[in-house]
């Protein structure tokens, strides 16, 4: 992808800093292309890993006859195969992602983040797909590793508009049958809504050997609830739903509730071995990515 295309979403400084990052999957995924990612299938790749004693059932062709000639015993050769990552970016464009000042709304931050990830992965010859959704799936671009595919992804992101209610649980349930191979699922959302259906869906994804990475994008107002005077809150997902109240009076309870919500999400992700990265829209994008990938490297 030409840099000029990515520059529509990222500043030059951000692009410079992104160049030093490497996206490394924590687990070996199947792929069609060689790359930096480790394959779980040993024995059929170019990079030798180890010898082990033959056991009935091993293919005859995997026996290392040279070793047999020296030792008169059957050993088979095992290879560590490097494969391409097959990643699917799930970007939430429901109504709640529309919160934030013009140009700095949550969905805009999510789009920037998705663009960065797509750029990095395609540069590593990984396959990247894109799914945009609200209460249901809006658009699906299947994973491709071709550089021209990035153009398609960016075009799709550029045309995304927020609206509708989010229902992550049903979205994941709908996405799951389309994932025929093991890979990386990257969710970029505020995760607002019922937590338990989301966690159940994550558990199902993990059961399908999908690695899941959740970027939770929040606005600082949602964390601090800084309103003072009487305010009418209008729901971004359900037009016509309004609440007139004294924000100072509910702030304490709201923050308690928010903390409970976040704790529940964190706990669920940890239990399902899902990485959760909480971001605010004022966070520098590249720093957020760097923190995440450092953590991924440590886990490797």
């Amino acid at each position: 992808m030409p840099v000029s295309d990515l520059g529509r979403f990222l500043s030059a400084e951000e692009l410079r800093r992104l160049g030093g990052l490497q996206v490394l999957a924590r687990e070996v995924v199947e792929g069609f292309c060689s790359g930096l990612h480790q394959s779980p299938h040993r024995g059929f790749s170019v990079e030798f890993r180890q010898h082990r004693a033959y056991v009935p059932g091993d293919e005859i062709r995997s026996i290392d006859w040279r070793v047999f000639g020296r030792t008169d015993r059957f050993y088979v050769r095992e290879y560590e195969e490097e494969t391409n990552l097959r990643a699917q970016l799930l970007v939430d464009v429901s109504g709640s992602m529309g919160y934030g000042p013009a140009g700095k709304a949550k969905w805009q931050y999510a789009v920037q983040l998705a663009a960065c990830l797509a750029h990095l992965m395609i540069r590593q010859q990984d396959s990247v797909g894109l799914v945009t959704f609200d209460s249901g799936i809006r658009r699906v671009l299947p994973p491709r590793a071709r550089p021209s595919h990035l153009q398609a992804i960016l075009g799709e992101l550029e045309g995304a508009k927020t609206g509708g209610e989010s229902d992550l649980g049903s979205v994941f349930r709908a996405v799951l049958p389309k994932l025929q191979r093991r890979g990386l699922l990257v969710l970029i959302s505020d995760c607002f809504g019922e937590v338990q259906p989301l966690l159940r869906a994550l558990a199902q994804l993990r059961h399908g050997h999908q690695e899941v990475l959740v970027f939770q994008v929040l606005d600082r107002d949602e964390l601090e609830f800084p309103f003072r005077e009487w305010t009418q809150f209008e729901c971004l997902e359900r037009p016509g739903s309004v609440r007139l109240l004294d924000p100072a009076q509910v702030r304490g309870a709201y923050l308690e509730r928010l903390e409970a919500f976040r704790s529940e999400l964190r706990r669920g992700c940890r239990q399902n071995r899902v990485d959760l990265v909480e971001l605010t829209t004022d966070s520098p994008l590249t720093e957020a990515l760097a923190v995440y990938f450092k953590r991924r490297m440590q886990h490797r």
């Binding site: 607002f192 309103f227 209008e234 919500f261």
Partner: peptide, 19 residues
């Protein structure tokens, strides 16, 4: 104050509603 309020489009309405 109740008559003169500001309007805020709000995303985390499910949290406010539960509160």
């Amino acid at each position: 104050h109740k008559r003169r309020f500001r309007v805020v489009p709000w995303g985390a309405m499910h949290l406010l509603d539960s509160v």
